[in-house]
């Protein structure tokens, strides 16, 4: 591993100053479960590693019925899935947070890191997109909000510019009669990277018979996590039925443009886009109906 220096930033402005000064040779360290591996393997380089775990804004985890959920970028997964509000209001996020890595990874890994690594297979991303998450991004002078589905530009690449960092993720409060679920397909039962995954959020009418709205995103089937508005459109206004779910799953499958690599083949991923979408929707509907 190349030599670098280490700063444990205490404030947002301290971190932003270093990032502004060092440009792309400064790297944020959150849980380190990606960054340390990347630096060790020479896939990223850094002169300065800025530990952001000590910055208060990046460590907040709060919920209000009006504002929804705010998760600091450096909050580790184990805090998220042990949080009573998240358990109650965002079960789809629990799905994702409990299957990233193993327990020891979850002791360190963060959503900020997962999002900023920008892997097409990043497990938190499809469900966060389904939940309509907004990224709060800060630099020395500016703070801005970016919808998560607009955050990614390619494998490992985000809209973040040198000098910027992700502060927090904001999830709106869950709509009435809504439900969400995240499912991934992996060959093992744990410790694996998604071959294909689907995050779904559905909003039903009061009778829970008809889709009022839906959001779906897929993982590992495109250069970035893939928001599929066509799938949501296929459901909106339709009765909850096998036909509607089938149509949404076919729309997701049509949107998928996967590649073949060591984790799976393009044909397999295309097929799984359909299967995972269907299963994630069924689970989301079950939750919306109180299951």
């Amino acid at each position: 591993m190349q030599a670098f220096s280490y700063v444990s930033a205490r404030t947002l402005s301290e971190a932003a100053d270093i990032l502004a000064r060092e440009g792309d040779q400064a790297k944020c360290l959150s849980g380190g479960t990606d960054l340390i591996v990347f630096l060790r393997e020479g896939r990223r380089s850094a002169k300065v590693v800025v530990d952001v775990k000590g910055i208060p804004e990046l460590n907040q985890l709060g919920y209000s019925p009006k504002e929804g959920l705010t998760i600091g970028a450096a909050v580790p997964l184990h805090r998220i899935y042990n949080d009573a509000h998240v358990i109650e209001h965002y079960p789809g996020l629990i799905d994702a947070a409990t299957l990233i890595g193993g327990i020891a990874i979850q002791g360190r890994a963060t959503l900020g890191g997962n999002v900023c690594t920008a892997s097409p297979a990043g497990d938190s991303i499809p469900i966060l997109i389904a939940y309509e998450t907004t990224c709060i991004v800060a630099s020395r002078n500016v703070t801005k909000a970016i919808p998560l589905e607009k955050f990614f530009v390619g494998p490992g690449r985000t809209v973040l510019q040198p000098g910027e960092l992700l502060v927090a993720l904001k999830l709106p409060p869950p709509k009435p009669n809504s439900g969400a679920a995240y499912l991934r397909f992996i060959p093992r039962n744990e410790m694996d990277i998604a071959v294909t995954s689907a995050g779904a959020m559905v909003v039903l009418d009061e009778d829970k018979r008809r889709f009022v709205g839906a959001r779906l995103a897929l993982g590992a089937v495109a250069p970035t996590p893939l928001f599929v508005p066509e799938a949501g459109a296929a459901l909106t206004g339709q009765p909850v039925s096998d036909e509607a779910i089938e149509a949404a799953a076919r729309a997701a499958q049509a949107a998928a443009r996967p590649i073949t690599d060591m984790r799976g083949s393009a044909e397999q991923r295309k097929h799984l886009s359909y299967v995972m979408t269907k299963r994630a929707l069924l689970r989301a509907i079950e939750r919306a109906r109180g299951g």
């Binding site: 380190g32 479960t33 340390i36 530990d51 580790p76």
Partner: peptide
């Protein structure tokens, strides 16, 4: 109090 893999923690942390 948290289980971690020490190969993915920097000594300085």
């Amino acid at each position: 109090g948290v289980l971690v893999n020490s190969c993915l923690v920097l000594g300085v942390e």
